[in-house]
Simulated assay, not measured.
Amino acid sequence: MATLVTENRIAKPDDFYEALIDTHRDLSAEQSNMVNAKLVLLLANHIGDMEVLKEALRVARKGV
């Protein structure tokens, strides 16, 4: 069974953050929310493991 990896595995996190910000640049709030929803679904499909996805959902909701 796979487990959720929460430590940083992105070689250049600042580059990723910049790309993420650029992706949302000049979008309305509605368009930005749509991009986020699509991104979540694409990454969930890539992960594919339901237990890992459920754990990620729990972690993401914690403290909100």
Results as ranks from 00 to 15, higher is better:
Met1Ser: 14
Met1Leu: 15
Met1Asp: 12
Met1Phe: 12
Ala2Pro: 13
Thr6Pro: 03
Thr6Ser: 13
Thr6Met: 15
Thr6Asp: 13
Thr6Phe: 07
Glu7Trp: 06
Glu7Ser: 10
Glu7Tyr: 07
Glu7Asp: 13
Asn8Leu: 15
Asn8Tyr: 03
Arg9Lys: 14
Arg9Tyr: 01
Arg9Cys: 01
Ile10His: 02
Ile10Arg: 10
Ile10Asp: 08
Ala11Ile: 05
Ala11Asn: 05
Lys12Leu: 09
Pro13Asp: 06
Asp14Phe: 03
Asp14Lys: 08
Tyr17Thr: 09
Tyr17Ile: 06
Tyr17Glu: 04
Tyr17Val: 03
Glu18Met: 02
Glu18Phe: 02
Ala19Met: 05
Leu20Met: 13
Leu20Gly: 06
Asp22Tyr: 03
Thr23Gln: 07
His24Met: 15
Asp26Arg: 07
Leu27Cys: 11
Leu27Met: 11
Ser28Glu: 05
Ser28Thr: 15
Ala29Gly: 00
Ala29Arg: 04
Glu30Phe: 05
Gln31His: 06
Ser32His: 04
Asn33Tyr: 01
Met34Gln: 11
Val35Asp: 01
Val35Lys: 09
Asn36His: 06
Asn36Asp: 15
Ala37Asp: 10
Lys38Phe: 07
Leu39Asp: 05
Leu41Tyr: 05
Leu41Asp: 12
Leu41Cys: 05
Leu42Asp: 03
Leu42Ala: 09
Leu42Cys: 03
Ala44Glu: 12
Asn45Gln: 14
Asn45Glu: 15
Asn45Arg: 11
Asn45Val: 10
His46Gly: 02
His46Lys: 13
Ile47His: 07
Ile47Leu: 13
Ile47Gln: 09
Gly48Thr: 11
Gly48His: 13
Asp49Gly: 07
Asp49Asn: 14
Met50Val: 13
Met50Thr: 09
Glu51Asp: 15
Leu53Thr: 08
Lys54Thr: 04
Leu57Asn: 01
Leu57Gln: 11
Val59Gln: 14
Ala60Met: 03
Ala60Arg: 15
Ala60Ile: 08
Lys62Val: 04
Gly63Leu: 06
Gly63Tyr: 01
Val64Pro: 01
